[in-house]
């Protein structure tokens, strides 16, 4: 028993190490960018004693962007972690199940059809969303619809993990088609901007978005943590979970709803950022094992770290050009996805 306590404490230390790492990368990210600032200037700005230009760069551009990376990364990662558990499918994540595309469709619909935002065609700030709540809400509704379809197929038709992902591919194409159709009837400039918008880009986040996103991710995290024992039980199989007192249907519905909410919010504010929800939880499962008491917070931290690193790379690798971060995360993620598929077939 004492050994067990020590073992759990060690996992806690690993989690702490992740927090430290995020802090370090965040500092590096604050310093990195087209405008050269030395660490001294950065710190002066943060404590409110910086020069005007530095203040604007730090407070209005870099800080919200870094926080958006941390929060969205954490959110997408736990969403993936919970989806993998709820559907008992290692390939599940917001992007592989088509939920991210559904959210993008919902966001497009709110912006273009219902005029919740105006789209300009200028660079990084192409989309001006005048009503972020209704955009997020619409994205959530459609993300939820996609999640329900997946849940229904998994439950009533007994789809295998691979078949579920194929269903996700079908849903992705369906919603992409829907998005294209909506954009077809929008104005030319809007189309260009909307296409650009669909790529994930953290530069869009201002303080307002960061705030909303963090509220959503924080409440979802609390909910997931409340359910952590249920998720552990679910890992041992649906029937065993029921015999341990878990209301499997309710837990699944709740988990998929909360994950869809995160996905909807992240996509409507930042565009589609793929594979974070797939890569980060799997990395943590490897390192810490499958116990959701540690896996949920650790996945959140790993997702935050991963997206932060990806975004910093995207900003600096061919500076001053800023690459869409979604492309970078897919470079990490797609090979891992293939690896998981290959390993799955090996075991059979």
């Amino acid at each position: 028993m004492d050994n067990y306590r020590r073992y759990t404490a060690n996992k806690g230390l690993a989690t702490l190490a992740l927090v430290l790492l995020i802090g370090i990368v965040a500092m590096i990210a604050l310093n990195a960018g087209s405008m050269d600032l030395n660490p001294h200037q950065v710190i002066r700005s943060i404590i409110g004693k910086g020069a005007d230009v530095a203040d604007i760069v730090i407070w209005q551009i870099r800080l919200p962007r870094i926080l958006a990376a941390i929060i969205a990364g954490a959110g997408l990662s736990v969403a993936g972690c919970v989806m993998q558990n709820n559907l008992r499918n290692p390939l599940a994540s917001p992007s592989t199940l088509g939920i991210a595309n559904a959210a993008a469709f919902g966001a497009n619909m709110a912006i273009i059809v219902f005029g919740a935002g105006s789209i300009r065609s200028t660079g990084a700030d192409a989309v001006n969303i005048s009503n972020p709540y209704s955009v997020a809400f619409s994205a959530f509704i459609w993300a939820m619809a996609a999640a329900l379809i997946i849940l229904l197929l998994a439950r009533t038709r007994g789809f295998s993990p691979e078949a579920i992902v194929l269903a996700g591919v079908a849903l992705s194409s369906l919603f992409s088609a829907g998005t294209i159709l909506i954009q077809y009837f929008a104005q030319d400039v809007q189309v260009a901007a909307a296409v650009f918008w669909t790529f994930g880009d953290l530069g869009r986040a201002a303080w307002n978005e960061v705030l909303i996103l963090s509220l959503i991710v924080a409440s979802a995290l609390i909910y997931f943590m409340l359910r952590r024992w249920d998720y552990n039980a679910l890992d041992s199989g649906e029937e065993t979970a029921k015999s341990l007192g878990v209301n499997v249907e309710r837990v699944r519905l709740g988990g998929m709803m909360a994950s869809s909410l995160i996905t909807g919010a992240a996509v409507s504010f930042l565009g589609i950022i793929g594979f974070i929800g797939l890569v980060a939880p799997h990395m943590m499962r490897r390192v810490l094992g499958g116990d959701h008491r540690q896996l949920i917070p650790a996945s959140a931290l790993a997702g935050a770290l991963l997206l932060l690193v990806s975004d910093t790379v995207a900003r600096t690798i061919i500076a001053p050009v800023v690459l869409p971060v979604g492309a970078i995360t897919s470079f990490f993620g797609a090979p891992l996805f293939l690896y998981l598929l290959a390993r799955g077939y090996e075991q059979k």
């Binding site: 073992y7 024992w229 039980a233 041992s236 029937e239 065993t240 007192g245 116990d291």
Partner: peptide, 28 residues
């Protein structure tokens, strides 16, 4: 679940320690 313990025919090979797996029995 406090009254009936159930052992299914097939078990998932979960990546958890034996202690954690048994601790799951305390879930209820």
């Amino acid at each position: 679940a406090k009254r009936i313990g159930y052992v299914a025919q097939h078990h998932e090979r979960t990546r958890t320690t034996v202690f954690d797996a048994v601790l799951l029995g305390r879930k209820p």
